[in-house]
């Protein structure tokens, strides 16, 4: 039985992923901190145009519902389907 702690790809993968993880973390902190600013409504024309919002409409916001089947780490909702392979052993 393969063991996670002895998997040959684990160490290099961790090292390879550490940099994007740090970048993502720094990005999140910057985005959160920037939320302290206040942009008045009359100055929101550009950020309210089509393609700039985070609407649930798939016309406005591109999002493929079926892609988490191919890329399981991208699932952001759902129970079993968001938990990876439930039929795997």
């Amino acid at each position: 039985m393969p063991n996670a702690s002895t998997s040959p790809d684990r160490a290099p993968t961790s090292r390879r992923l550490s940099r994007p993880i740090r970048l993502a973390g720094v990005s999140f902190v910057l985005l959160l901190a920037a939320g302290c600013t206040l942009v008045p409504v009359y100055d929101q024309a550009r950020v309210s145009r089509p393609g700039m919002t985070f609407s649930s409409s798939l016309v406005e916001t591109p999002q493929f519902n079926l892609l988490p089947q191919i890329e399981p780490g991208t699932a952001v909702s759902g129970g079993a389907k968001g938990a990876g392979c439930t039929a795997c052993r």
Binding site: L31, L32, G35, R46, V47, V76, G82
Partner: peptide, 28 residues
């Protein structure tokens, strides 16, 4: 039968007149 409890936190901000951000955190 699998049971899931999931927490989602979304933070959306208009950062500037030309930038909008969304941060989504999930724990399941």
């Amino acid at each position: 039968v699998l049971r899931t409890t999931a927490l989602n936190l979304d933070l959306e901000n208009i950062l500037t007149p030309w930038a909008r951000s969304l941060v989504r955190l999930r724990a399941a």
